[in-house]
Design a protein around this nucleic acid. Structure first.
Lengths: 203, 203
DNA sequence: AAGTTTATTAAACATTTGTTTAGTTTTAAA
DNA sequence: TTTAAAACTAAACAAATGTTTAATAAACTT
């Protein structure tokens, strides 16, 4: 198999689990079963690899709301439900990667990287913002604070994914409960956010 | 001044800004202007210092809702507003420390520490949970998903504090806007959450 | 004042870190 | 098949890491 790809995969897994500083290039090389020097050969530096890892994985995150939201056969409520569902799906599909992004974002590190990461996180929010704005203009929605409404939507999901231990404690579950893979929790979150957003947005 | 305290203060600032792995004991010693060996003398190890730092700062976070929520002269709506205000205040009072807690929580590190951190974060949510539960039983509130409602409240605030860059982009602000200290933003967030929670909870 | 604990220090220690070098093997083109 | 580029490797490098040691200074105790 392509060793370059193997390095990217191993690095993604290790960075996600242990953080950037918590992962050594030797850890990565060992996991990918390649020579350490190959990392510098392909990616110049550990930092270079890190950037490529984010680029590599970020492409999976695009869910392209645009088509859905421009579909005129759907009611605003139906569109809202889809937004909620897709946003949950995206975050739950890889909590580790989201942790990675947010961890680096909260550090005082290179603002160029922070800039790129925040762009990745934000790209899916732009069409949602436009959708709510349009809904208000149409009179479908109440005059809410658009930006903070989006923050609430994403923040609710994100906070539940903070950590397994945290989620278990909030929900009052036992140690055998895995919040990151539990289908019932995903459904429960969908119902909560649908209810919340309906009450918040609809007149 | 007490050198032990100086170390704790410097360590808190550096761990908050650069993360646990991103901070060396020499960085801390240098900032506190003490000899490196003093860290091990007082705290045995870097890890030991880290735990003491969290303990040291966590005590500031207790806002004691209990008194407020047991005050019968306040209406449920007034209590709700206070909860929102105090929760925002607490998070905004030290975003760096919250970042520190959450960063370590998302890592696969020692689950004993993760346990303690999640307890710190959760301690203020317990009385809120009881408050909503009581409100539902009284008929003041709708039958909402209590745990996820709390998640929404805290998650909304937390997400806005993810990073300065992120907050600026979400809100469409320029580089000179500091979301962490901006009083207007705090007020705006208060208004948003009041509106949101009223629509969500009240019949 | 003598003795004893506590506070503080400079230096050394053993690992681990990311990176480079200089060489070998493999692949592919001419 | 010769040649050149690409892929890969073992070893070494310099710097940074957390921790310990052995010694000294300061602060109490008796």
């Amino acid at each position: 198999m392509d060793k370059k790809e193997l390095i990217l995969q191993s690095a993604l897994a290790l960075f996600s689990a242990n953080g950037y500083k918590g992962t050594s290039v030797r850890d990565i090389a060992s996991a990918a079963e390649v020579n350490v020097a190959l990392i510098n050969y392909y990616f110049n530096s550990k930092e270079g690899l890190f950037e490529k890892v984010i680029e590599y994985r970020a492409s999976f995150l695009k869910t392209l709301f645009d088509d859905l939201l421009n579909n005129t056969s759907l009611s605003p409520i139906e569109k809202l439900d889809i937004i909620i569902e897709k946003t949950i799906e995206r975050k739950f599909s890889d909590p580790g990667f989201h942790h990675l992004l947010h961890r680096e974002l909260t550090l005082g590190r290179s603002s160029e990287l922070a800039d790129r990461i925040s762009d990745i996180l934000l790209q899916n929010l732009v069409p949602v913002k436009a959708f709510i704005k349009k809904g208000i203009a149409n009179g479908d929605f109440k005059e809410v604070d658009i930006e903070l409404t989006i923050t609430t939507l994403v923040g609710s999901i994100h906070y539940l994914l903070t950590s397994e231990i945290m989620a278990r404690k909030i929900l009052g579950k036992k140690a055998d409960f895995n919040p990151f893979t539990n289908k019932k929790l995903i459904q429960r979150l969908n119902e909560h956010l649908r209810q919340l957003m309906r009450a918040h947005l609809l007149k």
